[in-house]
């Protein structure tokens, strides 16, 4: 399949079950909500080394938040509920509790969630101890809030956050003629994908250049460079899937609350990237997988691209 002369590989992205939660961070102004959200989602590109993958889903207006203040929705993904709870406690404790004027709430409504529900993760119930006994709680409706005295007033946090069974590791590989083209296309694809709800692209700018494979020649390394897509290894690595025309490959990793969310984001990314076409430097669009043996979610590129508009061949 070719769209605008860009080859869509006959392959699939392989994704995995993860546990996820959405946190709603509010603050006195959007600036401070963003400060907290940026800090909380920092150093959260990959579960391999960061404990979780996290990103800003979108900014929220004051009409969309529990306390009527501007806010930011962030998504966090981890390999288990236990690890997710650990990361939530650590990151909210260090990045939201500390940030002036902020409050934090659970952002997934169990009544409307399309993702299967999992255990709740502690939020205010563990952070309350910072109050050193001065903290107080309040049940409003079905939600318990903790009010922790801090120097700018009170830090308000919902007692716990709803977690769901989610999907992590959807991906697109953008094979371009050179770095200029690859960056331009990747930025455009990420921009299109960020318009969609329930997904994050956790790497810097949504893009990763160090795509990895499982394992290494070194026993201590759980993952190593994806030599099949490294342009400098064309003709050297027996696994190379590139030709001499490809000068730069960038990957976009997508985590979503459901597989349909990930699939929708991948379709948006393919649409944006294929829109540039071969003339725009996009030679191929591919995806990473492990032969389908490890992850239960398979996103076939040609199925996702079936409805994408463009000149076909």
């Amino acid at each position: 399949m070719q769209i605008n002369d860009t080859l869509i590989d006959d392959t699939f992205a392989e994704a995995f079950p993860m546990k996820a939660t959405r946190l709603v961070i509010t603050a006195h102004t959007p600036v401070w909500a963003n400060h907290a959200a940026q800090s909380l989602t920092g150093f959260a590109t990959s579960v391999i080394g960061c404990g979780c993958e996290a990103g800003i889903e979108r900014e929220l207006s004051s009409h969309e938040t529990p306390d009527g203040r501007p806010g930011v929705a962030v998504l966090l993904f981890a390999v288990s509920t236990k690890e997710l709870a650990k990361q939530v406690e650590r990151r909210v404790g260090q990045c939201v509790l500390t940030c002036p004027s902020t409050a934090v709430y659970s952002g997934i409504d169990p009544a409307t969630s399309r993702a299967p529900l999992s255990d709740n993760a502690p939020l205010g119930s563990s952070l309350r101890f910072f109050g050193d006994g001065w903290q107080i709680s309040k049940m409003l409706g079905d939600t318990r809030y903790w009010r922790v005295p801090v120097m700018d007033g009170e830090f308000v946090a919902a007692e716990s956050t709803v977690t769901v069974k989610a999907v992590g590791g959807g991906n697109l590989l953008l094979l371009a003629r050179d770095t200029d083209a690859a960056l331009r296309v990747a930025e455009s694809a990420v921009h299109a994908m960020r318009r969609l709800p329930n997904v994050i692209m956790p790497f810097p700018g949504g893009v990763v250049r160090s795509g990895s494979k499982v394992g290494s020649k070194y026993a201590a390394a759980p993952a190593s460079t994806n030599d099949a897509f490294c342009p400098t290894l064309v003709g050297l690595s027996p696994k190379s899937e590139l030709d001499a025309e490809v000068g730069c490959v960038l990957e976009i990793v997508i985590d979503g609350l459901t597989d349909s969310d990930v699939g929708a984001a991948m379709t948006a990314g393919i649409t944006a990237a294929a829109g540039f076409g071969r003339a725009g430097g996009v030679l191929r669009i591919s995806a990473g997988n492990y032969g389908g043996r490890l992850g239960p979610y398979h996103f076939h590129l040609r199925q996702l691209a079936a409805g994408v508009e463009g000149r076909r061949a």
Binding site: T26, P66, D67, G68, R69, A103, G141, G153, E154
Partner: peptide, 27 residues
């Protein structure tokens, strides 16, 4: 003291469906 405005906003919103005059409180 002061600094409880976030809680007050949540509290007032939680009373919006209750009887007047509690439902008419302003954030």
């Amino acid at each position: 003291g002061q600094g409880f405005d976030v809680f007050w906003a949540l509290f007032v919103r939680s009373l919006a469906a209750e009887i007047a005059p509690f439902s008419t409180l302003k954030e």
